[in-house]
Amino acid sequence: MAQRLLFERYKRAMFSVALRILNDYDHANDALQDAFVEVFRHLDSFRFQSTLGAWIKTIVVRQALRKQRLEWRFETINEQLHDQPVEVPDTITGAVLDAAIRSLPDGARAVFVLAEIEGYKHHEIAVMLNISEGTSKSQVSYARKLLRKKLAELGLHGLGD
């Protein structure tokens, strides 16, 4: 069955996107299901303006964002984050970075995932999250600061902890 094959091909990548945005296993599963139902119901409206994977990803992202019932909260940048220069160990793994990303505040995490991992442009993120492009950029910067701090702490305490 073609639909099943399509689902099998994309399910892990798409679920990972949803999970990183939502940081909630059940919500991410719901978002994935809703998204693939939309995909199959609207497959005829796919106009090859992007790759099929990119089109599906946009639908998954939007469904994931919908699952966050409350407004996304965007914390303001705390300039005191940088009291000391941070030293991030070279040896961090993808799993460690993933854990650090998932520890970010909701808004900063969503914007970071969309901009830095999924490659969306700031004006696209602004539309998705109903924020300004400036907020999108500043949240990426905020997320990076938090990540540096988090990863540096992990380095100090040992990555195996």
Binding site: R12, S16, V88
Partner: peptide
């Protein structure tokens, strides 16, 4: 800059996750 370079390099190694078994 060093920290950002480490983060950017490691972004390519992020794990992927399986949805629940009965998703299909």
């Amino acid at each position: 800059l060093r920290a950002d370079a480490v983060i950017d390099r490691t972004l390519d190694e992020l794990p992927v996750f399986e949805p629940q078994a009965d998703a299909w």
